[in-house]
Write a protein that binds this DNA or RNA. Structure first.
Length: 466
RNA sequence: GGAGAGGUGGCAGAGCGGUUGAUUGCACCGGUCUUGAAAACCGGCAGGGGUGAAAGCCCCUCGAGGGUUCGAAUCCCUCCCUCUCCGCCA
């Protein structure tokens, strides 16, 4: 992924940040003080730079420690001096007010403070500059992997946790979903090219209905038996939200923008709008955990994936996903991730799809994740397991950027929440898996028991005769 | 899109350019009273940051950013958002 972030909002003064070690054309976050905007707790960097750098090294990120320490030293000196001057100005100005009230001549006093103001202005400007540089550096640092996350820089180091289900033993050569979707224009990629372009699809008839059935089934499962609240969210998100969950500033190239209002991006996942529901909130302890599920389309530019998965539904610019999000107390997040993983697995089990659970290595995880499990579903035509869900614990990383907090006890200081999310599951890929795993020799599709109520009791999907 | 009004602490709602980071009410926390609870009364109660071993001291924040000023919640500019009316529209 080659991020080419470009902040489209105008910044007075034209401050644009600068090129950091790993970042490109780094957009400066508007309005957010750097100590709030960092992904990592800046204190852990200040106090435990070695350990932090070592942990980041595990995921292939080399922290520019010299630069950080230099900036931090300057920041400290400037901040102390600035605050001294501010304190001085404040007391003197107050004195002027009092002198004026007594009817004294205040002109000499004013001149004195005026001189002080020059140095103050300079200090404030310098401090601002240093903070923006620090900001840019810090915003580009990914989350720290949990201790037992395997070492490794890519998917080769992922660890298989377990396998569920057994791939069917076909007595014919299984077809892939593209072939299975040919009859009656069930899946029509050419039509999609005509109306939109490549990496889109048109579905027709029973296939479109099956796709819808899958979505409904998943929503019912999560709301009915897993305790999530069904939530409807916008499909366009503002930059603040995208920043909160970590898509911006680094990964703008993966998103679709909207021309008429350049602040907006189409959501690449409901994680963005769902998780950001708690941005800038202070929740009461008894409101936690929050469990939310949403069905949304997702839009991804797939820049840089040319030539990969060009055939079929696997990698599309637009796809549907049922997303699970949990907002929890910090001490509960590890358990919550396991539970959420189970909720996603329940979908695959109900659909009678063989899959395996992978624990991602430090280097293969997303930018904001501290721990990620991928669910990979068996695709017979590819003779491989392919990702169908990704479940992550972000710990306080997103919460810090979002300033999403809760009050542990009435009257106590607010604390950052932990955020968890995962797909439960990607609908398009579920459709692919269902077609390919439950296909029969004649091209018909067996519908798993649990899904039948959503298809009017149908047990087999017969391909339309030409 | 046009016209008007407005954005202040968890909520409600004050705030002449100068001890206002902010009166007050509600909510909340602690206490007195009570067998217990309620009521009443007393006290506490924004968020973040810097520095420090700590106590503490200090700084920032009244939608956001910039400006004027010795000094801005209060004045000016830009932007965002909310509400009312009009237009348009599923």
């Amino acid at each position: 992924m080659r991020p080419r972030g470009r902040w489209l909002r105008e910044r007075p003064g034209g401050a644009r940040g600068r090129h950091g070690a790993a970042t490109v054309d780094f957009p400066v976050v508007p309005a957010t003080p750097y100590w709030k905007a960092v992904m990592l707790d800046i204190r852990s960097l200040r106090q435990d730079l070695d350990a932090t750098a070592t942990a980041l090294e595990r995921r292939g990120y080399t922290l520019d420690r010299e630069r950080f320490e230099a900036l931090e030293a300057r920041r400290k000196a400037l901040q102390v001096r600035t605050q001294e001057l501010q304190a001085e100005r404040n007391t003197r100005s107050k004195g002027i007010g009092q002198a004026k009230a007594r009817g004294e001549d205040i002109e000499p006093l004013k001149a004195e403070v005026g001189r002080l103001g020059d140095e103050l202005k300079q200090c404030e400007t310098d401090l601002h500059g240093v903070q923006e540089e620090l900001d840019a550096l810090l915003m580009g640092i990914p989350n720290l992997p949990q201790a037992d996350v395997p070492d490794g820089l890519d998917e080769k180091s992922n660890v298989e946790i377990r396998r569920e289900g057994t791939p069917a033993d076909f007595d014919f050569t299984p077809r892939d979903h593209v072939d299975l979707g040919l009859p009656g224009g069930w899946l029509d990629f050419e039509a999609a090219v005509r109306v939109a372009g490549s990496r889109f699809v048109v579905m027709r008839g029973e296939m479109a209905r099956l796709h819808r059935a899958l979505t409904q089934f998943m929503l019912d499962l999560h709301t009915g038996t897993h305790g999530y609240q069904e939530t409807y969210v916008p499909y366009l998100a503002n930059p603040e939200s995208l920043e909160g969950t970590g898509q911006l500033p680094k990964f703008d190239a993966d998103l679709f923008s909207v021309d008429c209002d350049q602040r907006y991006r189409l959501i690449p996942t409901a994680e963005v709008t769902l998780t950001n529901l708690v941005r800038d909130q202070i929740l009461e302890a008894d409101e936690l955990p929050l469990r939310m599920v949403a069905h949304t389309p997702c839009f991804r530019s797939e820049a840089g994936s040319y030539g990969r998965d060009v055939r079929g539904l696997i990698r599309q610019h637009q796809f549907e996903k049922v997303e699970l999000v949990q907002i929890v107390r910090p001490e509960d997040s590890d358990v919550a991730l396991e539970s959420l993983l189970g909720h996603a697995e329940a979908v695959l089990q109900a659909l009678e799809l063989p899959y395996r659970v992978m624990l991602l290595s430090a280097g293969d995880m997303g930018f904001a994740a501290a721990r990620t499990y991928d669910l990979e579903v068996w695709l017979p035509a590819q003779d491989a397991y392919r990702e169908i869900s990704s479940c992550s614990n972000f710990e306080a990383f997103q919460a810090r950027r979002m300033q999403a907090r809760f009050r542990p006890k009435a009257g106590e200081r607010p604390e950052l929440v932990h955020t968890i999310n995962g797909s439960g599951v990607a609908v398009g890929r579920a459709l692919v898996a269902l077609l390919e795993n439950h296909q029969q020799a004649d091209g018909s599709i067996r519908i798993p028991e649990k899904l039948r109520p959503y298809l009017g009791g149908t047990s087999v999907l017969e391909p339309p005769s030409e």
